[in-house]
Simulated assay, not measured.
Amino acid sequence: MPISETWLLPDGVADVLPEQAQVIETLRRDALDFLASRGYQLVYTPFIEYIESLSSLSESNQDLDLATFKVIDQLSGRLLGVRADMTPQVARIDAHVHPVVGVARYCYAGTVLHTKPQGFNTTRAPLQLGAELFGSDSIDADVEMIDVMLNLLKTTQNHEGIHLDLGHVGLFRSLVKHAKLSKATERQLSDLYQRKALPELAEFTASLKFGQDFYVLGRYASDLDTLEAKLSGEVFENHQFKQAFDALKATKAEIQARWPDLDIGIDVVELRSYHYHTGLMYAVYAPNRAAPLAQGGRYDGIGEHFGRARPATGFSCDLYALKTSQLEPVSVVVAPKGTQTDLVKAIEQTRALGFSVVQLLGNDDPQSIPHATHQLVQQAGEWVVTHI
């Protein structure tokens, strides 16, 4: 490879330069401090581990399996996976490494790696931050998680004009089971719902058992009152369907009570990763952004792969996507070379005030620090900070 190409990075991978890195690191610290204040304990997980551990999700989520880089461990000869999502790792911790009796709350922040960019995301190495709650199947847990997610975005100043989308995979899943549809038919319906193809949906559902209900589910997916009026009585007699419908309705009411000015939308046929999710799903969108700022949902039984099936709900986001466009200027003070006591003390005091202080080296002058904004100079026997 020519030397002119050795500095090039793969597509979807980028360096983070000092100004951006400072903003992102501040976001990370603020976010983790906020989650800690809500009782979420920080965990670190390995960047790579045996693929069997990561497969707790990939068995039910083919998209995640395809997103996972796989390599051979030269020590054991076994297949390793580079984490594409940290949720299965936290589930492993909850199941075996740190098995808490009762409710457990965890948070994390770390880089994950994808074989291809996911959705509208252009990076293959997001800085994933998230929170997980294990051990409660109550709707209160989902409400808490959504509230935490919204407050986190507020903490990171990503809350202006946001929109919350709510859904529940239980509606579609229970109706499919009630109608005894084949897997192939289920996949076709899911595709039609995802594409919002109403004319095709009307034609496709015409010959299905409960076909009118499947059409109504797609046609009025964003209006719970209309759904309740137009779906057949037999559908609502199904316990699983009714339970999912009531949970979705109650969640919307709870969140609206806590966030009265929040724009909340409903989409009962938003079926992203519905083989993975088991209940409520939620995502937050910002104006003029196609991809969600943060998203999550319920995934009960995720720990079954590790021998401890527990109710679970959680969300995650990419800190790179949360970073604000405006960079806060950093004040950098240039101090002269020297080890005299008064100068060393002045440098320490300046740093204690929140300044970044760089001391000159050798024969350098202040111009050798191009990002400097101030300098430490001696005036009338006292060291003072002045603008450059």
Rank of each mutant, 00 (worst) to 15 (best):
H371C: 12
G362N: 09
H387Y: 11
I146Y: 02
T373D: 13
C317E: 02
A244Y: 05
L361H: 04
P99N: 00
R124E: 03
L231C: 06
F47H: 07
L227K: 01
L271P: 07
S76C: 13
D137S: 07
L164C: 02
G354S: 01
Y40D: 09
L133N: 00
H98Q: 11
I255T: 05
V71W: 07
I24W: 00
G314S: 03
L133H: 00
E186K: 05
S232M: 10
Y106L: 01
V332P: 15
A250W: 12
Q256M: 06
V148W: 00
L192P: 15
S207C: 08
L42M: 11
D140T: 11
P2G: 06
R78C: 13
P88Y: 03
L153R: 04
K70N: 12
G12S: 04
D246T: 15
L343V: 00
E270A: 03
L166G: 05
L27H: 08
N288L: 11
N151Q: 15
A286R: 03
V330H: 04
E234A: 04
P2A: 03
K183T: 15
D94V: 08
A380Y: 09
L166K: 04
L133F: 10
L35W: 03
L360E: 11
S190P: 06
K177T: 15
L319Y: 05
V169W: 01
S325P: 01
L171W: 09
K337Q: 14
Y40I: 04
E234Y: 06
P292Y: 00
Q194T: 14
Y282P: 12
I3G: 00
S222I: 12
F34W: 08
V385E: 15
Y50N: 14
Y44C: 06
G297F: 04
I388N: 08
Q340I: 04
I347W: 01
G102F: 02
K177C: 08
R289E: 09
S56W: 04
R187L: 15
R272Y: 03
G265M: 04
Q326K: 10
V100F: 00
L150K: 01
D85M: 07
A91R: 03
R258F: 12
P2E: 15
D65C: 10
Y220V: 11
I93F: 02
P2S: 08
P260R: 00
A229L: 15
E382N: 07
F306Y: 10
V333W: 10
A31V: 09
S325Y: 02
I302C: 02
K177R: 14
D365S: 13
L32S: 02
D225L: 14
Q22V: 06
L293V: 07
V330I: 12
T313C: 09
G81D: 11
V103T: 09
S325R: 07
T155C: 13
F315A: 06
